[in-house]
Design a protein around this nucleic acid. Structure first.
Lengths: 192, 192
DNA sequence: CCTACCGATCGGTAGG
DNA sequence: CCTACCGATCGGTAGG
């Protein structure tokens, strides 16, 4: 409870996120995590209820950041293309600020316990719908026909999935330096 | 040896690719694979030397397809933008024709045995260099400054990583229908 | 937070 | 290809 115990819990999540990112959730054992934290395997259970709780504690805050970011951007009064740009910025910012968490969020979510997985998929679907509706409006405004907004969404989202690997390797400056290239590359297709 | 045994081996690889794609390499047990094939766990070892061999047998043919595709496209006499288009087509074709294998190739390669991993990374690096050099030439031809070709490569490659998931779900028509959208989205940024 | 341990499951083998 | 089994490791618990 106390300060000490709370820090220990955070430490467990942080070390686990690194390990899950490197070796995967299924490839990381409770003993790996304990060793990294510097305590005995059994001692982990004074702080956590089980392996699945750790995964949830890493993934859900990431989902919340994107959910809240989407809500905030949606409430702003500006054109949809500008909102898409803000969402791209959000992705780059999260990659830079939480590279280990977002790696797990992206690649290991399928190992979430059934109830957590349901919650995760629900949030993801909502996010996808919001993002896709913005793309749809841009395409309609520009009178672009025969372009599937959901496909464009998937391409944009996936095209950003190198950023957290760069951030994990400390190449944060490279991301910052290429922020405009990234936006130009993704938004140019939507301008016309 | 014989026909029977060769088919069995292929069957093991095919069922393993499905399972590795669904549950990950580390999350799939030898017993899972045996059950899917319909034999006892120990019997698998009449056909394979171990779990790692299966992963290699799934990943390496994919790497070869991309390596050979790159070599062939590089030997053709045409402008670099057209070559990039051909590489995009190659990715879509592999996703459509080998969705299970390419999923494993994309997401589970890190579990390859050290020697196989080395070979894999070498092939990947060569592919990346070829692709990036094409982007670089296009950017130079169009006199586009301050755009990092490697970043553009990563964006293009990753932007296509929804296709094999669609193909695995049988949505092959959706991919086919959007082939031009995909190319337009990715190549428009390089035209100008 | 540690020591000592649980039953279950892991990848893989011997012998037929 | 099966039966029967190996030692190692898994996630997790009891008691202090």
């Amino acid at each position: 409870m106390t300060r000490r115990s709370k820090n220990r819990k955070e430490e467990i999540y942080i070390e686990a996120a690194k390990l899950f990112g490197e070796k995967g959730y299924a490839g990381t054992s409770i003993r790996d995590i304990a060793e990294q934290v510097g305590i005995e395997p059994g001692s982990l259970y004074s702080h956590i209820s089980g392996k699945e709780e750790i995964l949830k504690a890493i993934c859900m805050p990431c989902a919340d950041i994107f959910s809240r970011g989407m809500d905030e951007i949606m409430s702003i009064d500006c054109d949809p293309l500008r909102k898409i740009e803000m969402l791209i910025d959000l992705h780059l910012d999260v990659s830079i600020n939480h590279p280990e968490s977002i790696t797990v969020f992206n690649d290991e979510w399928r190992y979430l316990a059934p109830d957590d997985l349901k919650e995760f998929l629900k949030a993801r679907k909502k996010y996808q719908k919001g993002f896709t509706s913005l793309i749809d409006r841009v395409l309609k405004d520009k009178n672009v026909r025969k372009t599937n907004a959901k496909i464009v969404f998937l391409m944009i989202i996936n095209s950003l999935k190198w950023t957290h690997y760069y951030a994990r390797e400390g190449k944060i400056n490279t991301i910052a330096r290429n922020r405009n290239t990234v936006k130009k590359f993704l938004l140019q297709s939507l301008w016309k």
